[in-house]
């Protein structure tokens, strides 16, 4: 091996080792665990084949969790993406206090999740501001407070999530917008294109790779929703906010059934994998703007 190669490997080793030990190993190990009954405390483990997966199919909580998580994903991603795009286009204009707006929209995504959850718990309380606002305009409010009614609990958390994550995706879109060559807009102007034509034929095609990235990571992140649930509702009321990762957490760390929890986690992994592949296909990954 050449000295240069050795140096390269040496310098890469901290990252590679971390990847192997803390990422790849747990990934493979949990796959093995999903085929066994493993008690994390006693350390007892024995192979049970696919019985964990079969049990999942019959587990009502699992289906509830899968349904809630899917609802969460489908209900948040379109809004987050569209709001992020609109905000990005707005703060990309020459408006006064542009820096302040950009920073302001981004702040929620770097604020501690727990802090945000606590703030929203106050907003959503029975006597909180949301109820107050609804009363002002005469809109109906849930009887038990927004987070404690089976119908409004999950949508309330989804609304918070949209508010929280929009800023981050706005920043990504903003970066993509700024990479569009200005000449293209100038040419469009000389050709007499209106704003919609410019948006449709210049902006959108250039945003496609970033849109794919945004939707992809947002899908992955949304399927893994946990902290919000842990802090705000613990899966209740009546399992209306029970999500996949929260179910995995309860099963593994409270019922000590790591094998069963791993099986549930692997089902989640497969769901995310398949959806990601579909998204890549739909967005035509690898195509360039000119295609």
């Amino acid at each position: 091996m050449k000295l240069k190669q050795k140096t390269t490997i040496l310098f890469l080793s901290p990252w590679i080792l971390t990847l192997l030990i803390f990422w790849l190993f747990p990934l493979v190990y949990s796959l093995i665990l999903s085929f066994s009954e493993y008690n994390v405390l006693s350390g007892e483990s024995h192979f049970v084949g696919i019985s964990n997966y079969l049990e999942l199919l019959k587990d009502g909580d699992f289906w509830t969790a899968l349904k809630n998580t899917s609802f969460f994903v489908v209900g948040t991603i379109p809004f987050t993406t569209i709001f992020a795009l609109i905000l990005a286009i707005l703060v990309n204009q020459n408006i006064p206090l542009r820096g302040l707006f950009r920073a302001g929209f981004f702040v929620p995504s770097i604020t501690s999740m727990v802090v945000i959850a606590l703030i929203f718990m106050n907003l959503y309380a029975k006597e909180g501001y949301l109820t107050f606002l609804c009363n002002l305009v005469g809109a109906p409010t849930p009887e038990k407070g927004w987070l404690f009614s089976t119908k409004t609990a999950l949508p309330s958390i989804m609304l918070m999530d949209v508010w929280m994550s929009t800023g981050f995706y706005m920043l990504l879109f903003l970066a993509a917008l700024q990479s569009i060559p200005l000449e293209l807009y100038q040419i469009s102007d000389t050709l007499g294109a209106n704003w919609w034509q410019k948006f449709r034929h210049v902006t959108l095609p250039y945003l496609r790779p970033m849109s794919l990235f945004v939707i992809l990571i947002n899908t992955i992140k949304s399927f893994q929703i946990f902290v919000e649930i842990f802090v705000m509702t613990k899966g209740g009321p009546l399992n209306s906010t029970l999500t996949m990762v929260y179910m995995v957490y309860e099963t593994g760390l409270h019922k000590f059934r790591m094998g069963y929890a791993s099986a549930a986690a692997y089902v989640l992994f497969l769901v995310i994998l398949v959806l990601s592949l579909i998204q890549l296909k739909l967005f035509g990954y690898g195509r360039t703007v000119e295609d």
């Binding site: 029975k126 006597e127 038990k144 987070l147 404690f148 509702t233 613990k234 899966g235 209740g236 009321p237 009546l238 309860e250 409270h254």
Partner: peptide, 15 residues
């Protein structure tokens, strides 16, 4: 109510 409520009932907090 809405100034005050009678009993403070715990929500469905697990454990």
């Amino acid at each position: 109510k809405p100034d005050a409520y009678g009993f403070g009932a715990n929500s469905a907090e697990r454990h």
